[in-house]
Design a binder for these strands. Structure first.
Lengths: 203, 203
DNA sequence: TCATTAAAGGGACTGCGGTTCCGTTAAGGT
DNA sequence: ACCTTAACGGAACCGCAGTCCCTTTAATGA
């Protein structure tokens, strides 16, 4: 007999992906604040009760959606030099944010994080992982003596993304190729100048 | 007789400030998604109907709140050198975002902008004005030959804020003095390296 | 001071997001 | 193949955010 234990079998998994996809669609169409769980259930061809039981709230659902997105992260490519690596990273982020669907999802997920602590935790984890994936390229640059020793790798990677997100969320300016290029160049210039060394400030 | 025309007299203005203050309090306490207009009305000691009639939606109210915030912007100080000016700017933004009330308000306003086009417009205008206030310090730096000619002033100022907002919204890392200092130094280093020149890239 | 009329107030009403209850389906162990 | 039970589904139900309607207040001009 089947005593205790969770049941991650076929149906449950199928429902989860269906609901997560539907939630993504609904978010892209209506945005975070107009998200109706009953509508998600309808799109997923799933009982409304199921959605409420398993996810409960909009932020809970979005948090799970984020966890799902985190699983399918593409590995970074090695491009030989710091600036090439940072450029590749900037382009990747740019493409993601500009993409109709992905951009809307990111906006929704960020919004959810400001409202709900679980979503916030998921988001912070997501970015911690993403950043960690790219830190090796900075470490390599330090070994190549492209950057001063003691440079904080994570800070360099974050510096590449920051201007792009600034445009996405605050200024509304387009996130074009030139923006990505500038973001990569700026991070590289600041890093070379020793701004991100943990020890101290070297002008 | 009083024919036509709006009536911006005492009571109306009094109601507006009362509601805006109450909305701010409620936002700080509950956050954007838990904002209830009836609750705002209660706090403002104003009829629920009035709030719905004049602002209609949560995003509408937040948009007006932002417009109100835009009016009371403090003028920038002149600190003699580029790095000192950027440092002052970074500190100002840092203080604002760290402040319990202001930080929550900014988060709410940014969230509203992702949901509602009017709020988005208000937000973009707000930052355009804020940025414009600080561009003179970059222009002065160009004249002093601290920066290469052709440097885009707005881009430099945005570069200072971007890492701070990144922490506020995405990573959740603390926005401390060191962060502000690094933001100012990084923007200055990138600008000196010619990253923000419109002409082209001077590595 | 008085007439006029924006604008605010109060309270009943309603549509819908979210919950509850209970019957049905299928995963998975034996 | 069969039994057990986690998980899903349908539908009635409920409370409250948002609307409507009508009354009251006070800003403004003559």
């Amino acid at each position: 007999m089947a005593v205790g234990g969770t049941r991650p079998g076929g149906r449950t998994a199928r429902v989860r992906t269906a609901v997560l996809n539907a939630a993504g669609d609904a978010l892209v169409e209506h945005g975070f604040d107009r998200l109706d769980l009953a509508d998600v259930a309808r799109r997923a061809e799933v009982g409304k009760t199921t959605v409420y039981r398993r996810w409960g709230t909009v932020t809970g659902l979005v948090a799970d959606l984020l966890a799902d997105m985190a699983e399918q992260s593409l590995p970074r490519t090695d491009n030989g030099s710091l600036i090439e690596d940072l450029r590749a990273n900037a382009r990747l982020v740019q493409r993601t944010l500009v993409d109709q669907r992905q951009g809307a999802l990111f906006r929704a997920v960020i919004v959810a994080a400001t409202c709900d602590s679980r979503a916030a935790e998921a988001l912070h984890h997501f970015y911690a992982v993403r950043i960690a994936e790219w830190t090796p390229c900075v470490e390599q640059a330090i070994q190549r003596a492209e950057l001063p020793p003691g440079t904080d790798p994570a800070e360099v990677i974050r510096a590449v993304s920051a201007p792009l997100y600034y445009r996405l969320l605050l200024s509304g300016d387009p996130i074009d190729d030139a923006t990505a290029e500038r973001a990569a160049q700026a991070a590289a210039a600041a890093a070379r100048a020793g701004v991100y060394t943990t020890a101290g400030d070297s002008r």
